[in-house]
Design a protein around this nucleic acid. Sequence first.
DNA 1: TTTTGAGTTGTTCGA
DNA 2: GTCGAACAACTCAAA
Length: 488
Amino acid sequence: MPASRPDAPPEPPVLVLFRNDLRLADNAALNAAVKTGRPVLPVFVFDDGADGGRPPGGARRWWLHHALERLCASLSERGAGLILRRGPTLATVLSLLDDTKANAVFWNRRYDPAGISADSALKTALRDRAVEATSFDGQLLHEPSRLTTTTGGPYKVYSPFWRALVSSGEPRAPVAAPKAIRPLHEAVASDTLEAWSLLPTAPDWAGGLRDTWTPGEAGARQRLADFLDARLERYAESRDRPAEAVTSRLSPHLAHGEITPFQIWHALARPDIEAGARDLEKFRKEIAWREFSYHLLFHNRDLASKNVNRDFDDFAWRPDAGLVAAWQQGRTGYPIVDAGMRQLWRTGWMHNRVRMVAASFLTKHLLQHWREGEAWFWDTLVDADPASNPASWQWVAGSGADAAPYFRIFNPVLQGEKFDPDGVYVRKFVPELARLPDRYIHKPWEAPADVLSHAGVKLGTTYPVTIVEHRKARTAALAAYDAMKGTR
DNA sequence: TTTTGAGTTGTTCGA
DNA sequence: GTCGAACAACTCAAA
């Protein structure tokens, strides 16, 4: 241990950059910094788009505020503070070096294209200044460049990617949080969280988010424990039923790095887990989808803006702001779609099955560009992820890698009847239909007049008339697809 | 180089 | 009501 005589020159600290890794457990960069035995200065560097990536949307800003409060509290329990700085990563870190005389900077790697560029520029600049710069893993089980086909290329199909992931060996074990952090005693300037104005005001739309989520590392741990304890054993059977809360809901915690896939993967292997092999495999495959999305993003920097399948550059979208608005606000007249869009608006999250139905509806029934939907989800989802969000939208739209065949057009009535058979989900988020009998809950327009009036439903007044007719919309979508193929 | 098997999540139609 | 075929070939990945 270094001497700490009061007259000794101050020992240079190690800076630990926090970005999408708002946790102390399984934090490789923080652990390595603590292990040096030197003072550690944790800094949250909020590039907020200044590194060239996408600034977080409204829902993630709300989450970030609370996650930072939690992170700050758990750092203080261990003796350290959290410095807040906003700006481009390189300039921000260089000014921190001036302020602190630090001679080492540690961080966990980011995997969005702008983050990769900014961090590699940072590494070069620091090494030019003889400052130690070291990056660590944590966000992904596999470096996106590491899994390759036998010919060395990137995977474009999920199944072979999954097989490669499984056969590439067990992911490393997670590491425990440091028990104590040696603080830096000199004061370092920090922004205040309030000054960043991450919380919505006028109006405060975050009530539903507060009721639904507990941002922060402890919340993530609790969510994982609940999932393993009560939900995983019904996962394979019920994961497609939005009214049943059997999905893990870990996505926003993963997106903010409050928990790592290493922690999740290893928790699934615990001997006390009572779940069938089918449940475990299904869930592991979802974790692997997240990995696959990052793999795609790594090899397609423009995933959020350009069709992976360039044939779709010729697709005849029919831009219509009114249709997009009706979809966003959950007034399409299709109960399962509207329930999903309202769940998203109210809680910052939507069940996976309903995401597919709602996304298919926007791109195929309404012929609106998938980018419209991707942008709306980016702004409203607490789990908005730079890889999963665009990869999944392109998958649904048919323009992505390993995408759904275009002719698979979800029928919103059948999907509702199949996965929300007793209408519990629809009734929760579309209360104006709550008194309709099950038989009509997914197709109120077929209900006889007396049934509607008895349920207090007036189509076109209390609940919208369908904005497009399913059969016609389906035919039009298939025709648009054929036209695109014809232009090749 | 060529061959071969396979490919998240669906719907509709007609027998 | 149930069941199988058609939907569109095409590209990927491994042998």
